[in-house]
Amino acid sequence: MEIKQTALAGTLESSDIQIMLSKGTDGITIDLESDVEKQFGDQIRKVITDTLAEFDIDNGKVKAVDKGALDCVIKARTIAVAQRALQTQDQPAWEAF
């Protein structure tokens, strides 16, 4: 699916992750800032990429600032940002959950 507008979800509070999703042309690119990048960077990227794949988003720029979010939080924030970027907030994507 095509990203219609840049969107943001999440905050910079502890245990949260702030994710920004905007148009891209070069697959999914993820710019990740995290204190636990070394330990969990790959896992965080995987959760984001997998969740975006459920929305059939193949191209997009992701900018994520992680403050120690658990996988479920990362997934929830990614779903929120994807729906906002696709402007489909009013149609919950049950299968993505």
Partner: peptide, 24 residues
């Protein structure tokens, strides 16, 4: 409070507010 927590809160709020105004 924890070092940085209020800073994160305030910056986070500023960013969200600007995003609502379509300033990205």
């Amino acid at each position: 409070v924890d070092q940085g927590s209020r800073f994160n809160t305030i910056v986070s709020a500023l960013i969200s507010r600007l995003f609502q105004q379509q300033i990205f």
